[in-house]
Design a protein around this nucleic acid. Structure first.
Lengths: 190, 190
DNA sequence: CTTGAAAAGTGATTTAGGTCACTTTTAGCT
DNA sequence: AGCTAAAAGTGACCTAAATCACTTTTCAAG
């Protein structure tokens, strides 16, 4: 566990360094959680009590439409943050599912604890500010890719950007992330 | 100008209140800018020196593809922040255009000044953290709408969510924001 | 007011990608 | 190793939306 907390500290310090005292305060506000493949981290209609930092593993965040079709909002693996941010922020029931594609481990941060450490330790507020900003930029680029690129070039782009991810995830889920049918994606390689 | 700065202060205080001293420090870090309809705030290839808070007016942020087609990333009006966040954050040349759909006024914040006031006044770090988080949530919802909804229901959804915007913006730009052709959008009403 | 340009509407045609139905391949289990 | 289930591939067909070409309407500037 010490080792795992060390990874989290290193993650925080990618943005700006923090003192040992600050760190000892911060770490008290995280809980540890471990799940097996196929278990749910978040479910539609259930409370969303935490944001999760992934120590190890891989999850998918997705919503299911009226026809039962899955649409993937995000893949998240080691060193990523994941939650139903909307439901979490407003402390409302979940609007999406998040489940594990591999056995996974998490550090869990409640809204109350997040606000506490942000207002107590300014470096943490800046950490989340900068992380959130990066996330925003990434989503803008995904939107642009959805507006401007064909399904095939979105696929090539993703292959290029996250090659390790593609290896760990079935192609039908990649299709669902790209907004393309499984069959169409399958015809791209050929 | 006092009146305009007052609006900006009120905007900051939507998240958490700040002292007069803090405010007097903060406001020194903003510049004022005013542009006429059709003038550019940001251009591809040009430096992106600021993030902009819109005092008054309306702008569009968009990229142009190889066929010369415009794809709208964002509309922004009074009380919104706009920039080429990606280029701004990395202090690189612009990757998108931002121009005015109406005569507009802005408060401009440089990266250096943003970091200065964030690290000097923790309330500001928290302000941007929370704003950025809200922005992230909005973009996630837009991605979901692009993945799960038909063009027509995206249009209805937008009509419902931002009715005032639709009145101020030509339909062909709405089409470009929704990722639909002008002609197809035009057939939806009938 | 008038007039020229931009925006919006509309019909005909094309096309990217979806859907359905089926086969082949791959990967976990015990 | 052998078996089942999930994943991936493939052909035939369908459909939502793009594109092209043109007309009508609206709007802003002299």
């Amino acid at each position: 566990m010490e080792e795992k907390f060390h990874l989290l500290r290193r993650h925080f310090e990618e943005v700006s360094s923090i003192t040992d005292d600050e760190w000892n305060f911060i770490r008290l506000h995280f809980e540890y959680k471990s799940l097996k493949k196929h278990q749910f981290l978040i479910q539609v209609g259930q409370p969303v009590d935490f944001e999760y930092w992934i120590i190890k593993g891989l999850v998918k965040a997705y919503s299911i439409d009226d026809k039962g079709k899955e649409h993937i909002l995000q893949f998240a693996m080691e060193d990523y943050w994941v939650s139903d941010h909307c439901a979490f922020q407003h402390q409302e029931p979940g609007t999406i599912f998040v489940d594990c594609l591999e056995d996974s481990e998490f550090f869990c941060l409640s809204l109350e604890n997040r606000e506490k450490i942000c207002f107590e330790v300014p470096a943490v507020a800046n950490f989340f500010r900068i992380k959130s900003n990066h996330g925003y930029i990434n989503l803008q680029q995904r939107i642009l890719s959805l507006l401007t690129m064909t399904a095939e070039s979105r696929y090539e782009y993703l292959l290029n950007k996250l090659p390790k991810l593609i290896q760990r995830v079935p192609k039908k889920l990649i299709a669902s992330y790209l907004g393309v049918s499984r069959e169409t994606l399958s015809r791209f390689n050929s």
